[in-house]
Structure formats: structure tokens, C-alpha cells
Amino acid sequence: MTNIHDRITVQPRSVIPFPDDLDDEDPVERRLVLLLCLDTSGSMRGRSIQEVNDKLGTWFAELRRNPYYARALEVALVTFGEGGVCAWRGPERVAYRDAGPGTFVPLSEFRPPQLRADGNTPMGEALRRSIDLIDQRKKFLRRHAEQVYRPLLWLVTDGAPTDPWEPLIQRIADAERNGHLQLHAVGVGAGASGERRRVLEALSPARNYELNVNIEGLLARMTDSIDQVRGRDQTTNWRRRP
């Protein structure tokens, strides 16, 4: 084998032009749906909730710089803890009866709320509500002839649930199997209890994480998941030769 690594002719470097019209070739044909289900229970009080508020804003601002995501990504937020289970339409808290497909906001318009921490951890109810909202949004988009990538649901908690959650295991498994959503279940904070780990593993056997890292690490993983669901959730038919 002739290894041709040795024969490099170095010339002054110029730049490969990046086409200006790339976005024109990549119209938004499918929506990306992201729902963050965040723990705002009392144990998040103080520095933890402040860090979530600070870093979420930065993260969304960074995502908005991606022209594709700014157009295609839709975001909603559900919190559990302070105020019970709450849906958020951007910075506005949405009354339970009003939360529906319209809770999702295009990334270009989404501004995260300032969250506060208090109360217990009704994770089961929050997840049930999150899955309902995703289902409603998907149906809404389908009715409007929009195609949708597999919706992403990110659950982030620093504790174990204080309400029933076991009935959700089967529902989530069915939804994952049928491609209706992809759940990432994340435990954060040093207080990792065996119970929390057991819950997250049961809810999302393939994608549960204990992240004792800073919130940037978590947000980077979330960005990865968006990249991946967009890159991989595609169609089966393509031209192949010969």
C-alpha cells in the first residue's frame, strides 16, 4: 500500500466558500417539538433554581442563533413543585384548563420564565401532563399538514416523586416504541438517592442520566438530542444506485 500521507504540498490557504443560499435549500418541512419538564420543588431553592433561570435563558439564546432551529423548533415548559404542576407558554404561566397545543411557542419567540422553587415533587402528574401536551401538539400539527420529528421530552429532577408515577412506565414505553416521543430522564444535584435513580431508570431505561455536572453539561446534551433526533428520524426511501 502506498501511503500518500507523506507528500503534502502546502500552499497559502484560501477559504472554501460556505453557500449563502443554504437555508433556502432547506425549507422547514418538519417541526421539532421540545418539552422541558423541570423540577421546581423546594429542594431546588436558592442557587439551584437561580442557575436554571440564568442558564436556560443563555441556552435558548444560543439555540436561536441556529437559523434552522429558530424556525423549526417549538418549545413548551412544564414545571412541578412551586405552584404544583404548571405549564408555561414562554414566560407566562398557563392555567391548567387553557394548556393545550398552543402552549408550544416557536423558538424564535420563546423566552423562558423566571422560575421559583417551592413545594413537593409531583413528577408523575407533570409527566402525564407533558405527554398529553405533546400528543395534542402533534395532532394539531398533523391537522395542519405539518410533518413532525419525534418529539423530545426532557425530564430534569433533583429528587424522587411524591406522587404516583408507576402507571406512566407503560404509557411512556408504548409512546417510545411507537415513535411518539423520546424521553430523556435526568437526575441532577449531589443528592442522588437510590430512589431517584430507580425512578428514572424505570421511566426511561435507554436514556436516563445522573448529571452531577454543571447545568451547561446538561444543556449540551439537550442540544445533542435535538441534533440527533433531527438527523436520525428520517425516512426510508432514497435513491440508490445501481
Partner: peptide, 8 residues
């Protein structure tokens, strides 16, 4: 697959 189990 578009929404299939193997999508990811």
C-alpha cells in the same frame, strides 16, 4: 424510519 422504533 419516520417514527419507527429504530429511528434513534
Amino acid at each position: 424510519s419516520r417514527y419507527g422504533a429504530a429511528a434513534d
